[in-house]
Computed example of a mutant assay.
Amino acid sequence: MTQRLDKQTFQTVVAHTPLISLDLIIENTNGQVLLGQRLNKPAQGYWFVPGGRILKDETMAQAFSRLTKEELGIELQLSDATLIGPFEHFYNDNFSGNDFNTHYVVLGYRFRLDISLSQLPKEQHCHYQWFDVATLLDADDVHHHTKLYFISK
């Protein structure tokens, strides 16, 4: 069974190790990408793809199902998505402040889903919007790490 760490222990982990996470690159049938405006650090206030950490003793498949349920309100399976690759995210702050940085190793998964913005959970993102790729690449308030999912390698 997976469980979350207490704040002090998690601060120690974030200060000393990279975190592993899954990002959900969701496209609707019009080719637009779902972004949410982040409520929490890191990347607070920026438009970002949904996603989150893999917890200890949680498989990637379990994490994907949990994260789609938490972030989208719909539980999906890892087999519904395509891995677009590993990415690294570095932030100058962390979930609890600015006293140390955050390092993520992120597995990006792309899938197609038409979902109503009004039914999306508000715990991690205060607003949601569908973006055309050209628009998100040009926007100053879309986070650099999100833009990297759409720039050809």
Rank of each mutant, 00 (worst) to 15 (best):
D80T: 08
Q129N: 08
L72I: 01
I54V: 14
D140W: 00
K56V: 03
V13L: 14
R66W: 01
N40G: 02
A63S: 14
A139L: 08
F150D: 03
Q124T: 10
D6C: 06
T12V: 10
N28L: 05
Y149Q: 06
I84P: 06
D141I: 05
S116G: 06
D23M: 09
F10P: 03
Q3F: 02
L5D: 03
N101F: 00
A15P: 05
Q3R: 13
A61R: 13
G85N: 13
D132P: 00
W130G: 02
L55F: 14
E70A: 13
P50D: 03
W130N: 01
T2E: 11
A63K: 06
G51D: 07
D80R: 09
I54A: 03
K56S: 11
Y149K: 11
E88D: 09
K147F: 00
G108V: 04
F150T: 02
N94M: 08
F111A: 04
E75H: 01
L117P: 04
L113G: 04
T29H: 14
T2P: 15
G51E: 09
E123H: 14
L83M: 15
H127K: 15
S96V: 05
H143K: 07
Y104H: 12
D6H: 09
E123W: 10
V49K: 05
R110T: 02
L72R: 01
M1T: 08
G52S: 05
V14S: 05
K7I: 12
N30Y: 02
G85R: 12
W130F: 11
R53I: 09
K147C: 03
N92T: 10
N30D: 13
L22N: 07
D132W: 07
Q32E: 15
T135G: 00
G108T: 05
G73P: 03
H127S: 07
L83G: 10
T102Y: 00
L22M: 09
N92A: 13
D57C: 07
P50M: 04
D138G: 09
Y104Q: 08
G85E: 14
A81P: 09
G97R: 11
Y109P: 03
V106F: 01
